[in-house]
Write a protein that binds this DNA or RNA. Structure first.
Length: 853
RNA sequence: GCGGGCGUGGCGGAAUUGGUAGACGCGCCGGACUCAAAAUCCGGUUCUGGCGACAGAGUGUCGGUUCGAGUCCGACCGCCCGCACCA
């Protein structure tokens, strides 16, 4: 018997699959059902990490399984290749972003191929290739014509020292990551996709996505954030104009004690012009960075403008107007009214600035006399009080009433509002798809005509100074206006990389050289049947891709609105963290397992931290290449699927991977030890199988059902457990006669066939050893015999007052009476009910008998 | 801060969706084989008490619904993810 040599066998089968084009995409009308499985394509960061291995292994299991079930499968791979890290590398290491990116792609392609993935590599592309992004530019022009593109001002993080726009992740505690300077908020004209045009449709579409995780749908629903409320006009007293306030709680208007406007509200800016103190406060507000998180967690600050506004229902009641750092200009009208009694943030604000707190909603049993608010706002249901015409009404009725009243008086209107903002899609960076537009003094903004595409990125750029290399390129931006021919300036913004990933799944259907999409191919393959990726993309990427598909539908490119029929979000790969005596992080290779626990190689004690996402900064990474070199791809794949449920985080452990490796060796041993003694591959079942043979057959057919169900339901860990059980059953049988050996062949063949999606190379090698000339990838999935899947007898639990007292074996179809009788016959049961009155007997056939005494 | 999720033996987890909690794997303990070790094979392994048969407790915490709760409801605690220029 030979030991299984993973290195040799994996190479052999990868070559053989490639030679047979085993994973090519059938593009003819085969009549077979089609299945499109896609994993989120990777950013070519340098090397693959375990998260990639997990993601692509899961997709590969689905792809191989569906192929075995007779589907034509599309399973492609590409590269999300534009983005900031390439520019950072360019600045730090003087390597061109393109060179860096393509080098990384080569490395990572090699690593992925070593995993033996069932991918059609002929469809590979990188989004940074002009062959891809020229089509993206064409799509942009179509969107522009369809009115889905808009230019408007929005704010960015500006680093005043580096003179550059910062991404949110480059802002640390309100300072630029390189310069350390306090960031400023700047307004720039930017390009937007009008995703808000589709807000209602994106919301409604969620209800049709029944193969998406509920949590993702809930997150998207909350992100879109549709709310029904009111726009209320607060007239400025002793001056001109109104403050327009959006609220979802107009019922609490009589509890108002102030109004607050955003720091970049037009009124704030107007006031700043005449008052340097206001200007200084606004500047203070702008020093936290633009992220919502930074704004929301910053200390709540307000500035009393001295302005007062009249209450919409009482001219004589005036409220102060504050500028507040927690009011967002992007949401609603950029102004709120504060009702401290019923909103925690307003309450904190009111306490800080000494503003009145008047409760107007009272929980059941409370009255305006009995109820007061101390340091906790009341945001529950109740009945209105202190509220004039709303007194005595419940909250929903009060809302209707106050809206009617506002509209009657012309003091406000009903308004539906969305939290969702338009998609700001332009970036002041080099390594992205150039935005095909020209700025002309006479004609304004002019899109680049279709026949002048692509707008190519210039190669000769430098990264020695911060800022956008396109902007300071000596010649690139100087062009003639496509409209009037006068000298003009090319747009130097590039696309947000989310644009690239919003249509790549459509491009995979068919690489049409002449157009962005191949309509027939898209119709054939879309929508994606199963999309797999991390939850971190639950909102942005997935929402943008849904928007893009709708926009493409509107422009006539595709016929469907929803790109991803099934979605699965997998967990991260974690690893323990280690620290040496000096408090510095240690990598797993630097740590050895000694007698007294973990230590460094020179005997220093090691502190073991909890398991966290693998990251370079904590040095708790494990390189897949090392694992594949040591154990083989199959073992790595198997471990990725075993133990942890796919949606949950997986803890990488050395002993776990060794367990997986032992299993692969065990399967190989069982096959190679038995192969010679087995009856031929297609021998008919001999008559009169013994008990052991029948028992093994039952185990084998149950495994077929269990593994099939596990894969279908994305419960790969339970599928793996089924295969372990089958392996145990196979190794338990010591064949005594031909019948045993026949059953052994069946069980071994099932084991190998069912293992193929998880460990394809070993399965192929074992299949060949079992005497098969046709590779497994061309062999159908087995069918379980229903008669062998169910047992003849079932174990039924007998409880007395909910406590387990006995278990009884009963024929599968026993009725209630038989179960009850057998239960009472048990001595333990007799003992437990002795001297008690039987009040009730609950029988769940095949499950449980519960005697209530 | 807001939104979403998760929590079960020493560890990763399973539990036909309200019906025997702990499948399967890891680790550990004991045994076989071996001069020895590795590898492999067999047995045991939730906790507490007991030599034992057995008894009791037990799914983050507290409470509730039910004949019956890991599963449903309420409150709390802890951890993780996202927050619009990271991808």
């Amino acid at each position: 018997m030979s030991r299984y040599n993973a290195k040799v066998a994996e190479r052999k089968w990868q070559d053989r699959w490639a030679a047979r084009d085993s994973f090519g995409t059938p593009d003819d009308e085969s009549g077979r059902p089609r299945y499109y499985v896609l994993e989120m394509f990777p950013y070519p960061s340098g090397r693959i990490h375990m998260g990639h291995v997990r993601n692509y292994t899961m997709g590969d299991v689905v792809a191989r399984y569906k192929r075995a079930r007779g589907f034509d499968v599309l399973h492609p791979m590409g590269w999300d290749a534009f983005g900031m890290p390439a520019e950072n590398a360019a600045a730090e290491r003087k390597v061109h972003p393109a060179a860096w990116t393509y080098q990384n792609i080569d490395t990572m392609r090699g690593q992925l191929k070593s995993l033996g993935l069932a991918i059609d590599w002929k469809r590979e592309f990188a989004t940074c290739s002009p062959d891809y992004y020229r089509h993206e530019q064409a799509l942009f022009l179509a969107f522009y014509e369809a009115g889905l593109v808009e230019r408007k001002k929005s704010h960015v993080n500006w680093d005043p020292v580096d003179q550059t726009v910062l991404a949110n992740e480059q802002v640390i505690d309100g300072r630029g990551w390189r310069s350390g300077a306090l960031v400023e908020l700047r307004h720039l004209s930017q390009w937007f996709f009008k995703i808000t045009d589709f807000a209602d449709d994106l919301l409604a579409g969620l209800d049709t996505l029944d193969r998406w995780p509920d949590k993702v749908r809930i997150m998207q629903r909350n992100w879109i954030g549709r709310s029904e409320g009111a726009r209320v006009h607060f007239r400025i007293t002793g001056g001109e104009g109104t403050v327009e306030v959006y609220t979802t709680r107009p019922d609490t208007l009589f509890g108002a004690s102030f109004c607050a406007i955003a720091s970049d509200h037009p009124l704030s800016r107007q006031l700043a012009a005449g008052n340097p103190e206001v200007g200084a406060f606004i500047e203070l507000c702008h020093q936290s960075g633009t992220s919502e998180e930074a704004i929301e967690t910053a200390e709540k600050l307000g500035f009393d403008t001295g302005l007062r506004v009249a209450h919409p229902f009482d001219e004589s009641w005036t409220l102060p107007v504050y500028i507040a750092n927690f009011v967002l200009m992007d949401y609603g009208t950029g102004a709120i009214f504060g009702c401290p009694a019923h909103d925690q943030r307003d309450l904190d604000f009111a306490r800080k600035y000494g503003l009145p707190v008047t409760p107007v909603v009272f929980p059941e049993g409370e009255t305006p006399e009995s109820f007061s608010v101390a340091d906790k706002a009341y945001d529950g249901d109740g009945v209105l009080g202190n509220s004039r015409f709303m007194d005595g009404l419940a909250v929903p009725a009060a809302k209707t009433r106050v809206l009617d009243e506002l509209e009657r008086l012309g003091a406000g209107t009903r308004e539906v509002n969305y939290r969702l903002r338009d998609w700001g899609a332009s970036r002041q960076r080099y390594w992205g798809c150039p935005l095909p537009a020209v700025h002309c003094e006479a004609c304004g903004v002019v899109p680049v005509p279709k026949d002048q595409l692509p707008v190519l990125l210039p190669d000769d750029v430098t990264f020695d100074v911060p800022g956008n290399p396109l902007d300071r390129h000596p010649t690139w931006k100087h062009v003639d206006c496509p409209s009037c021919g006068a000298p003009a300036r090319r747009e130097t913004d590039t696309f947000d990389t989310f644009v690239d990933s919003s249509w790549y799944f459509l491009r995979f259907c068919g690489l049409n050289p002449d157009a962005p999409l191949d309509a027939d191919a898209v119709a054939r393959w879309m929508p994606v049947d199963q999309y797999i990726g991390g939850v971190e993309h639950a909102v942005l990427h997935l929402l943008y891709a849904r928007f893009f598909t709708r926009a493409l539908q509107k422009c006539g490119f595709v016929s469907m609105a929803e790109p991803f029929q099934g979605l699965f979000t997998q967990g991260m790969v974690n690893h323990e963290t280690y620290k040496g005596p000096d408090g510095k992080w240690l990598s797993p290779e630097e740590v050895v397992r000694g007698e007294a626990g973990l230590a460094t190689k020179d005997g220093q004690p090691v502190t073991v931290g909890r398991s966290e996402k693998m990251s370079k900064s904590k040095k708790n990474t494990v390189d897949p290449t090392d694992i594949i070199a040591t154990y083989g791809a199959d073992t790595a794949r198997w471990y990725m699927l075993s133990d942890s449920p796919p949606e949950r985080d997986l803890d990488w452990s050395e002993s776990g991977i060794e367990g997986a490796w032992r299993h692969s060796q065990r399967v190989w041993r069982l096959v190679s030890e038995n192969a010679d003694a087995l009856p031929p591959a297609d021998a008919p079942a001999p008559a009169g199988l013994g008990d052991a043979a029948v028992a093994l057959r039952r185990a084998a057919h149950k495994a077929v059902k269990g593994v099939t169900d596990g894969i279908e339901n994305f419960r790969f860990n339970t599928a793996v457990a089924q295969l372990y059980e089958l392996t145990n059953a196979v190794s338990a049988l010591k064949p005594a006669d031909l019948g045993d050996r026949w059953a052994l062949r069946e069980a071994l063949e099932f084991l190998v066939r069912l293992s193929e999606p998880m460990m394809p190379h070993l399965a192929e090698e074992a299949w060949e050893a079992l005497g098969h000339a046709t590779p497994l990838v061309e062999t159908a999935w087995p069918e379980a015999d229903p008669a062998l899947v169910v047992d003849e007898t079932v174990k039924v639990a007998v409880q007395v007052n909910g406590k387990l007292r006995a278990t009884i074996d009963l024929p599968r179809d026993s009725d209630r009476e038989a179960a009850e009788q057998a239960a009472f016959a048990e001595p333990k049961v007799q003992q437990a009910v002795a001297g008690k009155e039987i009040r009730k007997v609950i029988v769940v056939p095949g499950r449980i008998v519960n005697i209530v005494a």
